[in-house]
Amino acid sequence: MYKCEFFVYEKDKPFSVCIRPYKENDFDGLIEIQSECFPPPFQSDLWWNKEQLASHVKLFPEGALCVSVDGELAGSLTGLRVNFDPAHPDHTWEEITDNGYIRNHHPEGNSLYIVDISVRPKYRKLGLGKLLMQSMYHVVIDKGIDRLVGGSRMPGYHKVSNSISPQQYLEKVMSGELRDPVVSFLLRCGRMPVAVVKDYLEDEESCHYAVIMEWKNPFKNEGAPGNGI
């Protein structure tokens, strides 16, 4: 089972970090982190509940990772395996994640789909989100999965939605003209846009849009036998 221990630095101060699968005794802390990461207007009923977390641990423990800093739970990243066709990217978060319960997890699915990533605000300067994402890339490689994919919120879009389309907003973020807290972060993690989708999630800040973004397994050859949809 995946476990990685190392140090990160903020200026010259070291912090001890551990990334590992989360377990039942982490559930209260993970829900607390969700409340810190997704305050109003984000809907509180979209935070994790213990039944969802238990399902993650049972169905795909390799896709249920958490990170601690000096022993304090600091964030999590959750995924499931699905069959995803980039040529037909339209879907909602509820559909592809089974409303966060991942009971539709496909053990042989060609894609590892990111359900959620959350890092306590006070620890975000340490780069933990990127480290969690890189850990999930390790899972993709280890299991020979074609890609990691997921929907990115566009929380900065509501500020300019009266003047530009969601696609134009994405293009401006990619060119560096605008910065989006989530899309820009995922670009720095190596994720690439596949498509903008409408009504992905009840998310006023994103005007209910999302960008489907992927990271392709560099050890899989496109078009090779067994690498198709």
Rank of each mutant, 00 (worst) to 15 (best):
D98C: 09
P89S: 06
A64T: 01
P155K: 04
L46I: 00
N162D: 15
K130N: 11
V211K: 06
I19F: 11
Y137L: 05
Q168W: 04
S118M: 09
I96H: 07
I212T: 05
F185N: 04
E32C: 06
S68R: 05
R147F: 05
E94T: 01
V183Y: 14
L148C: 12
V196P: 04
C18L: 11
P21S: 12
G226L: 06
V57S: 12
L112T: 01
L201T: 00
E72C: 03
N83E: 11
E24Q: 13
N221H: 10
K3G: 02
V182E: 02
H56G: 02
Y2T: 07
W48D: 09
S152N: 09
K198S: 06
I117N: 04
D203V: 00
P14F: 15
V197G: 05
N99H: 14
E36S: 07
L53E: 06
N104G: 11
G150Q: 10
I96V: 15
R103M: 04
Y169L: 05
V197F: 06
A64S: 13
Y123W: 15
L186T: 01
L128Y: 11
L73V: 01
G150H: 08
L131H: 09
E24I: 03
Q134E: 14
I19S: 07
E10L: 13
I141S: 12
Y169A: 06
E108L: 13
N25G: 02
P155T: 01
L170I: 13
E204P: 00
Y101I: 03
K216V: 01
I141T: 09
E171P: 08
G129K: 12
H88A: 09
C66G: 03
Q134V: 02
P40G: 00
Q43H: 08
H105N: 15
T97D: 04
P218K: 13
I117C: 03
R120C: 08
W215N: 08
Q168T: 02
P39A: 10
I96D: 09
V173K: 12
